[in-house]
């Protein structure tokens, strides 16, 4: 039993915003408390991270404001603390809270950039493989299969190591950022490629693609204009979940010392630094960046999970 959808042709077409507010996805969102909290959490953390130069209580990169006398301060509620440093300070006398804000910003930028690059590469190759088929498909997908046999972190380490060997003499501070993004994107593109290839193979046999071919439209326009918008649903889901994964992988690499340098600390770098002092009593230096990382990843992941369920017609 299907409801007849006979909208009179004279009715005014709703705008994109009205469409979104009236959509099933938006209503599913309003019904899930966990998702609303996750979305709110994500939004707050993003704001804290990207507004850090204006809202952080101290500037941890301003050497003039640092004072070694302030080093190893415990969090504000513990005896002997300076209330100016809410979550305490590190070995250089930097404010942990501010360092977390700035660190989160770097983690997020690296995460977003690597997700975008990975998605571009993966979607492009997946579209070509799925639409062309045959040998091109076999070649691309075998490369992807081989890469899948290695853990993502191992590939990132390999690329990172190789790049450092090649560009070791160059300015490390600028380059480690781009090397990190490059190695993370290269380890995550496979998922996009496989998903997009699968959806493309379904879409290319639909009659709207055949209609476009009958009109005479060349393959690359069909891929970009007709197929791509119809396969973006699953890509959005992977991208959201991958953002969390990229942040964690970046943190792991930084923790291992091959990611962001100590002069531009990400959350992973902060944890790594704090780790050295974990057993000497200065626990706050590792724990608070760790909690921030966990919260950030949790919120993004919950959002991604919900998006996956909301876009999955089988679970509706």
């Amino acid at each position: 039993m299907t409801e007849t959808s006979e909208t009179p042709a004279s009715k005014k077409a709703p705008s994109t915003m009205e469409r979104l507010l009236d959509s099933d996805i938006f209503h599913a969102f309003l019904r899930s408390k966990v998702t609303i909290m996750a979305a709110a959490g994500t939004l707050i953390l993003f704001l804290l991270a990207f507004l850090s130069p204006w809202i952080a209580p101290h500037d941890p990169f301003d050497l003039a404001s640092l004072d070694v006398m302030n080093s190893y301060m415990p969090p504000a509620w513990i005896e002997g603390a300076d209330p100016a440093f809410l979550l305490g300070t590190d070995d250089q006398g930097r404010d942990i809270l501010s360092a977390i804000f700035y660190g989160m910003r770097i983690s997020l930028i690296v995460g977003f950039c690597s997700v975008i690059f990975a998605a571009l590469v993966g979607i492009g190759l997946g579209l070509i493989a799925g639409y062309m088929g045959g040998r091109i498909d076999a070649l691309i997908m075998r490369v992807a299969d081989v890469q899948l046999t290695f853990p993502a972190i191992l590939i990132a380490l390999l690329i990172d190591g190789a790049a450092r060997g090649l560009f070791g003499s160059l300015d490390r501070e600028v380059f480690s950022f781009w090397i990190l993004i490059f190695s993370l994107s290269l380890s995550f593109w496979v998922q996009y490629a496989r998903t997009v290839r699968g959806s493309t193979m379904v879409e290319k046999n639909k009659e709207y693609v055949q209609a476009a071919r009958v009109i005479g439209i060349p393959s690359w326009i069909i891929m970009l204009r007709h197929i791509l918008p119809n396969v973006t649903g699953p890509v959005m889901v992977i991208a959201t979940i991958n953002l969390a994964l990229a942040i964690v992988t970046e943190a792991t690499l930084s923790f291992l010392g091959v990611g962001m340098p100590i002069t531009q600390p990400s959350l992973g770098t902060l944890i790594s630094v704090g780790n050295d002092y974990l057993y000497s009593g200065e626990w706050w230096m590792a724990i608070f960046p760790g909690v921030a990382l966990a919260l950030l990843v949790l919120c993004v992941n919950l959002l991604g999970d919900w998006l996956r369920d909301a876009l999955n017609p089988k679970l509706r």
Binding site: K206, Q210, A211, V214, R225, P229, N230
Partner: peptide
């Protein structure tokens, strides 16, 4: 030469 297809639900690009 042009063609009209059988299934009106899959012969139009839903995103356009």
């Amino acid at each position: 030469m042009q063609m009209i297809f059988q299934d009106p639900f899959s012969s139009l690009n839903a995103r356009m």
